[in-house]
């Protein structure tokens, strides 16, 4: 019995090809059943995320089954034979190693991301429910999850946020803990503000106030975020009650000055206030950061923190690979 893996991901195929092979989560079990019905295939698991679609199979004749599966997929999706160039093919221990790397986040677009672990687990569960797994794939996936957990526990591969938005959210959580009691004000309805505010909302921010020179745009963004639009002249009143301010207006000069914040301090009872300035030129006067309870971060600082996290994660790759190799060496998996 051979273990094989056939797949394509963000490195081997453009999005227009990936989307043709993508399988929606509710259909994963069904897709596994279809593959398991192919000649020579005894077990099958289909993993599909926005960046990859992979087919893990146990078959009597590995090479032959790979060829048959490719043909079946091309036929089913109505693609030309050249589309097979986007596939990667792996057998035996190479396939097991690949799955461990995927589960550990080492093969992801954002190195070390944690979402993939849950997605692979979901795919395996769907195949298990569909009855398309057996001695080979059950053992492989269960061991891969163990290895993935060990990699994340024993290294810092998932430490630190790697995007500006996530860095800002992590900082907000470091200041306020759970964001469910935190209120956010967006100054300027730009794309970066929207993304950062969305990240805060996804982590439970209590309410969002949007203000913009064009009130209509503020209303649009407020509606999209489930927040409240505020006229630009009134943002100073809102400052008295919010905890986080995200600013990205296109103004050529500072919008928020030290005097603005000083005026609001007493009404705020000197509670901590977090300013995220992602505008260039900056919207918030650096002197604001000198106020005791204010934490001010501009785009350069946030970008630098994200880059440092990315570099830190890259430095962890070798340790992660060593853990995977040594764990796999202990396992003696069937089909490898």
């Amino acid at each position: 019995m051979d273990l094989i893996c056939l797949g394509l991901n963000h490195r081997t195929a453009p999005v227009e090809v990936r989307e043709r092979f993508a399988v929606m989560t509710p259909k994963l079990g069904e897709a596994s059943r279809e593959l398991a019905a192919l000649d020579g295939v005894t077990e099958a698991v289909v993993v599909s995320t926005c960046n990859r679609t992979e087919f893990y199979l146990a078959a009597d004749q590995g090479r032959e089954t790979l060829r048959l599966t490719e043909e079946a997929l091309i036929l089913e999706h109505g693609l030309p034979a050249e589309a097979t160039h986007h596939f990667y093919r792996m057998e035996k221990s190479e396939a097991a190693l690949h799955l461990c790397r995927v589960v550990s986040g080492l093969d992801s677009m954002m190195l070390g991301e944690t979402e993939i672990f849950g997605q692979v687990k979901q795919a395996y569960q769907a195949a298990l429910d569909a009855g398309t797994t057996g001695g080979v794939l059950n053992r492989l996936f269960q061991r891969a999850f163990g290895v993935g957990k060990k990699v994340r526990t024993d290294t810092q591969i998932q430490e630190g946020a790697t995007s500006v938005g996530n860095v800002a959210v992590d900082l907000a959580e470091k200041i306020f803990g759970h964001l469910k009691n935190s209120e956010v004000m967006i100054l300027g309805a730009g794309e970066m503000s929207r993304l950062t505010a969305q990240a805060l909302v996804s982590r439970g921010a209590k309410s969002i106030f949007v203000t913009n020179r064009s009130y209509d745009r503020a209303v649009d963004l407020a509606n999209e975020m489930g927040g409240r639009a505020v006229r630009f002249d009134d943002w100073q009143h809102v400052l008295e009650k919010v905890d986080v301010v995200i600013s990205s207006t296109g103004a050529p000069h500072a919008i928020v000055t030290r005097e603005h914040v000083e005026k609001a301090r007493r009404a705020r009872k000197y509670r901590p206030l977090f300013f995220i300035d992602i505008a260039v030129p900056r919207d918030i006067d650096p002197a604001v950061g000198e106020i005791e309870e204010v934490y001010l971060y501009d785009i350069d600082t946030l970008e630098q923190l994200a880059e440092e996290a990315r570099v830190r994660r890259k430095r962890q790759i070798e340790d992660c690979e060593q853990i995977i190799q040594s764990e796999l060496a202990k396992l003696n998996l069937p089909g490898t």
Binding site: K174, P272, T301
Partner: peptide, 18 residues
């Protein structure tokens, strides 16, 4: 937080300000 020194293990393990 004020000085943007956010890399230490101590920083990662300290509870939130609030």
């Amino acid at each position: 937080l004020k000085e943007h020194h956010l890399k230490s293990g101590l920083f990662r393990n300290l509870p939130p300000v609030r």
